[in-house]
Structures are given as C-alpha cells and as structure tokens.
Amino acid sequence: MIEVNGKKVEWEKDMTVEKLLKKMNFTFPKIVVRVNGKVIEKSDWQDYPIPDQSVVQAHHLIAGG
C-alpha cells in the first residue's frame, strides 16, 4: 500500500511514477510529483520506481480559467 495525496492506494510490483499516474488517471499536463519528499522531474517519471509504503504527492498546478 502507498499513500497518494493523502489517500491509500494499492501498490503494484514494478510501479513507476508514470504507471502510478496512469493508474490514477492523472492526465493533467502540469503535475509536480514528490516521492517520499523528493521532487521527481517529468523526464524521470518513466523509470523512477515507487517502493511499497511510499508517500507520493502528485500536485496539479492549476487555478482555473
């Protein structure tokens, strides 16, 4: 189990940032991702592993039209 934006989410083997965002349907173009407090740049999302028990923040940067 991991925590994403404060909510429990089932952890999956070989989970990466990219796979997590896909699982969450987080399609927004501007998201700041932190895994256990570390900012992960977008260029690293494909390969960056998310270990079980991680605390993930996926903050969408938008404040409306």
Binding site: N5, G6, K7, Q57, H60, L61, I62, A63, G64
Partner: peptide, 18 residues
C-alpha cells in the same frame, strides 16, 4: 464566478486543504 478562487485541484485532487 471563478475569478475569485479556483481551488478544485488543490482541494479535491491534491488534498492540500484537508
């Protein structure tokens, strides 16, 4: 009108305002 505040993502998605 949303020109005062648009907090939906901060609140609902990011859970920054618990």
């Amino acid at each position: 009108q949303h020109d005062e505040a648009w907090l939906i993502f901060m609140d609902m998605v990011n859970n920054q305002l618990p």
